[in-house]
Design a protein around this nucleic acid. Structure first.
Length: 524
RNA sequence: GCUCCGAUAGUGUAGUCCGGCCAAUCAUAUUGCCCUCUCACGGCAAUGACCAGGGUUCGAAUCCCUGUCGGAGCACCA
């Protein structure tokens, strides 16, 4: 019994079971596990909280991929909040704000709202003052190192029990910029004897002398730390579910102290491990990539060797393929390796049906073609599974180019796909030199064999281009640039069109540069 | 040093909460065969895993303990 038949039978015998089966199938499409306590909320509200200190690398795609997919799964709401509260160490890159939104769009998602933390400073100040009045924070002028050692010994610093009025005054002075960097911080009073040293009194605000790169925020000097800013914002924007990296595991525990002072309820929170990606030599870190570009080792954020979203995008890999792979990784807290082959497999599935087939001959060897009754053109199909799309028309003049590995031995035949069967005849005097790389030295002679030569005699089928009428191509790959020649039809594409170079792989048409057509290699 | 978290095939994942239907799911990868005028697509098959040791139990991937390995935090970074 086939699958269809079994299904029909089940439908007759037990319609309930069949319905259940269908329901299961639908759930599997979502692939992500249910969010904790999802049904306790009227609306699932999540946020992306990128630091705009540079364009995104591939690992950054995990956050929007998973959160965006959850948004779809629950018909929820998604905020993109730029956590740009460090004008110095992780200084925002003004171009990155748009680059990141563009990347989210490429992945196929749209935030319901976009905010910048640096626009919300007054809100953070207001909440800090309220926290001070609650007795939940104190200004502290201990040098960082001294406080650190006191904290290690679970010892309170002398500033911890200042009256709220004094704290208020000193905090206002911080806001007014009356202190220099390092002179004064505002700390949240947690539990200085907490057994986990990571949770003892943490900094909520510190002074930064360097002005913020955004003009609107350049006058602020007292900047909130992530744990304070993010905690306040998550509550004010009604976030129900936070998903973030394991490096922020202790953040929730720290922020809960603030939430307790305010009488707020902490959102559901999930943590995941770091993503590593195979297949790249370059380290996947914003700062490393930035440095490689500055050194000229990479040509830009979209260099095919760069592990960035801009790069895979330029290679013709669809955002959807990246999202699927990220979703397949799930949300476990272990560190995971993403195999690029998974992205490639997903992308191949997306583009294969629509990609025209074309020939690209890399490092081709020039071979004259002889034979009086040979056809003057080859006509391979545009797509093997779609006859209705028609054939290509590739003229054969006096010679063709083949990839060196495809040039047959003397006397052997080869089938030029869409054209026909030819026999290689090395030049008699220098047959030994035939496989030198300067040129084969022989010629291809039309044999007139029909397709049974391929089916029964095993003559290899190869791709080829005409010697004269072809398109010079620079194929940019992860391993560097490759030069070759494509069939004439390759000249007629638009940027972003994806083709499959037969027996080479999928590639995205990029444009022309100084008479050479540029394509980006995607994957096999 | 203190504190948290984790460990299922090459990779990722399901199952773990509520022990039996798990000699462990699915995808990808690799290999072979079929199809094919591509090494694509499609079809079939093979390969391959419960970190280790104890304990509880009639029964443990699942519960408990110990160990090993890995990760994270203890920043005036995010």
């Amino acid at each position: 019994m086939g699958a269809e038949e079994r299904r029909d039978r089940l439908g007759e015998l037990a319609p309930d079971l069949l319905a259940e089966l269908d329901a299961d199938d639908e759930e599997e499409d979502d692939a992500l596990p249910d969010l904790p306590n999802a049904d306790e909320y009227d609306e699932i509200r999540m946020r992306l909280a990128p630091n705009p200190n540079g364009p995104w690398h591939l690992g950054n795609a995990r956050m929007p991929s998973v959160i965006g997919t959850y948004k779809q799964q629950y018909d929820g709401w998604m905020l993109c909040r730029f956590d740009d509260t460090d004008p110095e160490t992780k200084r925002p890159d003004l171009d990155a704000y748009d680059a990141i939104l563009d990347a989210v769009d490429y992945l196929g998602f749209e935030p319901d709202e976009v905010v910048r933390a640096s626009d919300r400073m007054e809100t953070y100040y207001d909440h800090a003052r309220e926290l001070i009045d609650e007795g939940g924070a104190y200004t502290c002028s201990c040098p960082a190192e001294e406080f650190r050692s006191m904290k290690a010994d679970a010892e309170a610093c002398p500033h911890r029990d200042k009256p709220a009025e004094t704290v208020r005054e000193e905090f206002d002075a911080m806001v007014d910029g009356d202190y220099e960097s390092g002179e004064m911080v505002l700390r949240v009073k947690t539990d200085i004897e907490h057994k986990n040293p990571a949770l003892r009194d943490f900094v909520a605000f510190r002074m930064v002398d360097t002005p913020h790169p955004r003009e609107e925020a350049s006058d602020y000097r007292a900047w909130p730390m992530l744990d304070f800013q993010s905690g306040v914002d998550d509550h004010l924007t009604g976030i129900t579910h936070i998903i973030r990296g394991i490096d922020l595991q202790d953040s929730a525990k720290r922020q809960r102290f603030v939430y307790d002072y305010f009488g707020w309820e902490y959102p559901e929170v999930l943590h995941w491990g770091h993503v590593q990606i195979d297949a790249y030599d370059v380290a996947m870190s914003t700062s490393t990539i930035k440095a490689e570009i500055a050194d000229g080792e990479l040509t830009g954020w979209d260099d095919p060797r760069a592990p960035t979203l801009a790069s895979v995008r330029r290679r013709g890999i669809r955002g959807e393929a990246v999202v699927e792979s990220m979703v397949e990784l799930g949300v476990s807290t272990t560190n995971v390796d993403l195999a690029m082959s998974s992205v490639y497999a997903n992308n191949r599935e997306l583009v294969d049906d629509g990609a025209d087939r074309r020939f690209l001959v890399r490092n081709g060897e020039l071979l004259p073609v002889a034979g009086d009754d040979r056809p003057d053109a080859g006509h391979p199909p545009l797509h093997p599974n779609h006859d209705d799309r028609g054939d290509r028309d590739i003229p054969v003049d006096d010679a063709v180019r083949l990839e060196p590995d495809d040039v047959p031995a003397d006397g052997e035949r080869v089938w030029l796909k869409g054209y026909g069967c030819l026999r290689y005849e090395a030049a008699s005097e220098n047959a030994d030199a035939a496989d030198g790389d300067g040129g084969a030295g022989g010629e291809l002679v039309w044999t007139g064999d029909d397709i049974s030569a391929v089916r029964e005699d095993g003559v290899p089928v190869v791709h080829w281009v005409p010697a004269e009428e072809n398109v010079r191509v620079r194929l940019r790959t992860m391993d560097g640039d490759v030069f070759g020649r494509a069939e004439p039809g390759f000249a007629s594409y638009e940027p972003d069109d994806v083709v499959q170079f037969e027996r080479v792989g999928f590639a995205r048409y990029d444009g022309t540069d100084d008479g050479v057509t540029v394509a980006y290699y995607a994957h096999p």
